[in-house]
Design a protein around this nucleic acid. Structure first.
Lengths: 331, 331
DNA sequence: CAGAACGCGTGAAACGATTCATGAACCGTC
DNA sequence: GACGGTTCATGAATCGTTTCACGCGTTCTG
């Protein structure tokens, strides 16, 4: 049992099996090798409990089998889900994940991108909020929810379609006058198309709508002012809301209830994202569900296929509507 | 700009600075070196945009600056929080985190432990559910919430104290007859002390209590049967609940409301963990809050201090009570 | 002022894998 | 039976660091 402490190297295996170093390497990497040799090597590997040393492999081959995921945090449910599925998709393919939490800090975003390149990762999946990002060349780079240029593939949900769907649903559920609440970041990223889809959907359905944009740093109370004005101080109060995220929907519901209205009886609310309580329980509101596993799977398979030519630079994945207790169809 | 593509090596820096390889190494690693040499090297490093190659460093030094975190997933809010803070604590110290999701699968737990050892990580932090785990020697290993032996340090919240605190609070809030709901895994880990603390607290306060243990695989409906029986079919209905986790509290609240009771007016509920909506918004129920940042910080600093001698094998961190809308003190 | 002691920069060796030029062994053909 | 062609195991060189024995130059001591 003494030998267990020291980890065996490839030459130990070669000596044990009575073959050359190169032969062991071939067996390990699944390259063709004579049957008898393969068996001898495999026996030696098992006997010595040999595993390749990733550092040595990476040093020589210049590939680390590691992909960096750059993301604000794992605390927000959507990011937590995404992180989980990205990791699983990578693991399935024999890759490891290097997590970089930006905390929405632009400096950290840029710092991670450069740092990670020097850390010799084999690719980067980034969900960032910087307006400008120095995107390294010579290393596969895909983004989620943020389109930079045609040479940087972007994976996103069908945000526009989701917005349309929400509008259609609200119309279908009998709403007469609806509003879209969103936090209007100065940054135009993919999720900001949700409102555009919603507008399009409302026009299509002939639904009268209001738009409430919270610009960067505006206090949440702006929503309350807007809602109070459009519910209490009017003859045609809102009876439907579409919110840019489920989080926002949650806040809006609190405000609306505070104004004395019932959800969904008096006013129906649809969010976006598909967040569930505890990550896997009930949906916290009626919502447009993002296909998180598919987003992760697509991002991973794209970052690993180092040939982006011919692929559309923006890949849109289908969303679906999910009743979640804040629309009348879920009663 | 051609040179930017190729990453510079240490000997490039040495040549550029006109010094020897070893000197560059010393500068990089902060070892004492003559002032003029240091300046020349630093200039060359900047000029060539040099960064050490982690693979080469790891290969030679046999240390990877990576710690493995073995955890069921990042989808459950508690795990997501822990993952986040562990990563931050590691980053602060110049370490990277290697994430291993077990999905509560015992085989995966064991597989990761062995795999990770061969991946040459510098230490392991594990939150597992296996009754037996082959704990590798010769590599720092600390656990969270699961005590294996005196030689494997375990970090946990003060689960017993938290249970006591919950009992005391319920008594203080005027409860007459309370119950403890828990999912009684066959595994005795640290969190299972919550019920013991609760029992102790009830006895201390002279509070009459029931215990409802859900054994492995028992359906959630068992809770409903228990609650129905102890609320509707009795002269002295329950007016307080302590649940092993916030998730369970959430389920219990749904059941209780389904029976026609109001929370917290008719029955007050306290959970455990300190989960918040969206990770950083409101607490989802009145709860005993685990000090997640401190848990992470402690686990990290322990796994990195490779000398465990003299430390108590079980480290308990203080919890606190937090009103969250399901007890009368939060109205 | 000689010799010991010390400080410090030097560069070769080693970590454990991959790769590739080399040549041995074997097969088929005339 | 000899020769060309093919297959395939071999092992030396290499990746970019860290480490350490070495020796040069300087300072200290008596």
């Amino acid at each position: 049992m003494k030998g267990d402490k020291q980890t065996a190297t490839m030459s130990d295996v070669a000596r044990e099996a009575g073959v050359a170093l190169g032969t062991v390497s071939k067996v390990i990497n699944g390259q063709p090798v004579g049957e008898s040799y393969r068996l001898r090597v495999e026996a030696a590997v098992k006997k010595l409990n040999y595993r390749v040393n990733p550092s040595a492999k990476a040093l020589k081959s210049n590939r680390t089998s590691t992909i960096a995921l750059i993301i604000p945090n794992t605390i927000s449910p959507f990011f937590a889900l995404l992180t989980h599925y990205v990791n699983m998709a990578l693991e399935k393919r024999g890759y490891k994940m290097m997590l970089c939490f930006t905390e929405y800090d632009r400096d950290r975003e840029q710092e991670f991108v450069s740092m990670v390149v020097h850390n010799r990762v084999d690719g980067i999946i980034a969900l960032t909020y910087s307006a400008h990002l120095d995107i390294p060349e010579g290393i596969p780079f895909v983004t989620i929810d943020r389109f930079f240029s045609v040479s940087v593939p972007c994976i996103a949900s069908d945000n526009f379609g989701g917005g349309q769907l929400a509008a259609r649903k609200l119309a279908e559920l009998g709403c007469r006058r609806v509003a879209c609440l969103r936090s209007g970041s100065s940054l135009t990223n993919e999720p900001s198309k949700r409102k555009d889809g919603f507008v399009s959907g409302c026009m299509e359905a002939g639904l009268s709508f209001e738009m409430c944009n919270l610009t960067d740093g505006a206090p949440l109370s702006a929503f309350e002012v807007f809602l109070r004005h459009n519910i209490l101080d009017t003859d045609t109060p809102l009876d439907g809301l579409f919110c840019g995220t489920d989080l926002m929907a949650w806040d809006a519901i609190k405000i609306v209830r505070g104004l004395g209205l019932r959800v969904p009886e008096d006013i129906q609310v649809i969010g976006f994202d598909g967040i569930r309580m505890f990550g896997d329980q009930d949906y916290i509101c009626s919502t447009i569900v993002q296909p998180v596993p598919a987003l992760a799977e697509t991002a991973v398979s794209m970052v690993l296929s180092n040939d982006f030519t011919g692929l559309p630079p923006l890949i849109c994945l289908p969303v679906r509507y999910q009743p979640g207790g804040t629309t009348r169809d879920s009663l």
